[in-house]
Amino acid sequence: MNIPDQKFKVVVIGGSAGSFSVVSRILSQLDPSFSVPIVLCLHRLKHIRSGLVEGLNMKSKIPVVEPYDKDKLRPGIAMLAPSNYHLFVEFDGTVSLSTEEVNNHSRPSIDYAFSSAAFAFREKALGIILTGANRDGAQGIKCIHDKKGFTIVQDPASCEVDTMPRAALKLFTPNQVLKPDEIVQVLNQLKG
């Protein structure tokens, strides 16, 4: 497995259908001293908007928070994009929220989260796209790839629904195509 040598300012993880259990699994196996800020951008079912942050916190080795607008990314904290808001990573390491129109039927839009991280941190952004049932995120993670950031796509064979990773794989060749447990191994060897 190839472990990126560069230092990262943010890890952005995007997922949709089936991603809750994968994200829980990743967070539950993280090294508690994991020191890169994480942004989680997960599609939510319209009528089940609450409880996600609590659910993830039960499993996670690092704190998971729903940020307020302009909160700063912090090492070893996972920020979950609030339901019904887009989340953007800004140059100064803060996050901005937005209620702009849905993108790919989604708010939060994974494309926006990925592309903002690419725009702000270029090669210092790491993007991971997980299982999901639509195309949101594919274009965005390609932005990270284009700016020489590091990209990981969940192995479609390990996905509950593989539309999202396959859409990404159609657009570019990521640094890694990995199963969830392998994703954790990469994360745990990152330099903050």
């Binding site: 800004e90 140059f91 702009e100 926006y112």
Partner: peptide
Amino acid sequence: YSDNSINR
């Protein structure tokens, strides 16, 4: 304005 949003 916030950079990302206005840029896009």
